[in-house]
């Protein structure tokens, strides 16, 4: 694993969640070890492999778990003692904690009442409509598929328009259409000025909705911040850049002469893959080189400036 890379995610609005030297152990098993971080407004992805400690971390943020060491502040208060904070938060835990004997509408109504909200029936139905579950609102939850359960629980979390949503693996069991819809909801939520913390072990899910991430590996904070910035901070890792052009052979030969280029490979599809230690220099040199050799560039794509590559560098070392 790489050394801890820390880039502050706050957007100048102060931290909505703040953890100070937080650890959690169950018997002899250390689930979370000495994590200090601040999460700002907007959408933040909490990432890590299965068993990394994401759920434990989220549960401590929510006040569902005590900390073995350290302290947690959620919207400025300790959620273990100041339960009023739950009026301002919508939480969707990882497990399918819905009452089987209830209908979807009853469950959303219950969630509203448990937040001390006397919501109009129309408001509850709107929350259900938002997750495309209106067709099943009068059906018992015991008849729901896993994806439907996730959606009705999301509706329950959304009811009351909370200023912060905390979602633990919300896309488990969701099909591709539902994933897209879910991403739309997250973007809408962020546009409305509310914040979201979403955990997942599926990188694409988080990459689609957020560039601000917290990476947890083996119970420790591996990195935090904008994942492009994290990638840039990993300067010992060269970038792969894929280039499509009118004359790959000639351009490849010219690129190989550049000091910033470590190697040049020719892909079977006719493109060039360049390994560079300095992508910024390459971005400046490449157009000049192409113009000088009368080569038309059609596509330039960094292929490991992705969350997945950052993740694999940090997790796999």
């Amino acid at each position: 694993m790489q050394s801890h890379t820390e880039i502050d995610t706050r957007n100048g609005n102060g931290a909505i969640v703040s953890l100070d030297s937080v650890s959690k152990w169950f018997g002899n098993v250390v689930a979370v070890s000495d994590i200090t971080l601040k999460i700002g407004s907007g959408i933040t992805g909490l990432l890590g492999p299965n068993g990394a400690g994401k759920t434990t971390l989220l549960r401590m943020m929510c006040g569902l778990y005590s900390t073995s060491e350290g302290s947690v502040r959620l919207l400025g208060t300790d959620p273990r003692t100041d339960h009023d904070v739950y009026k301002r938060i919508g939480i969707m835990t990882e497990n399918e904690s819905a009452y089987e004997f209830m209908t979807g509408l009853e469950f959303v109504r219950l969630s509203a009442r448990l937040k001390d909200l006397r919501r109009e029936e129309a408001h509850l139905r709107a929350a259900i409509e938002r997750v495309d579950m209106s067709f099943a609102l009068d059906r018992k939850i015991s008849t729901y598929s896993r994806g439907m359960r996730q959606r009705i629980r999301l509706a329950a979390a959304l009811v009351g328009d909370p200023e912060l949503l905390i979602l633990d693996e919300p896309l488990n069991g969701a099909d591709p259409t539902q994933r897209l819809r879910f991403q739309e909801i997250l973007h809408q939520t962020a546009e409305e000025g509310r914040s979201v913390i979403i955990s997942s072990h599926i990188l694409e899910e988080v990459e689609e909705v957020s560039e601000s991430v917290v990476l947890v590996v083996n119970g420790k904070l591996a990195a935090q911040g904008d994942f492009h910035a994290i990638r840039a901070a990993l300067d010992d890792r060269p970038y792969h850049v894929k280039i499509e052009c009118s004359d790959p052979k000639q351009l490849g030969g010219e690129l190989a002469k550049l000091p910033a280029v470590q190697s040049v490979q020719f892909d079977p599809d006719g493109s060039i893959v360049v390994l560079t230690t300095n992508v910024a220099v390459l971005q400046l040199d490449l157009p000049v080189l192409a113009q000088h050799n009368d080569i038309r560039l059609t596509r330039i794509q960094p292929i490991d400036d992705s969350l997945e590559s950052v993740f694999s560098y940090l997790v796999e070392g």
């Binding site: 569902l64 339960h83 938060i89 939480i91 835990t93 448990l114």
Partner: peptide, 14 residues
């Protein structure tokens, strides 16, 4: 056991 206690514990009450 069935983890529904979470719903109550996340309520804004003592």
């Amino acid at each position: 056991e069935d983890r529904t206690l979470t719903n109550l514990m996340l309520s804004p009450i003592s």
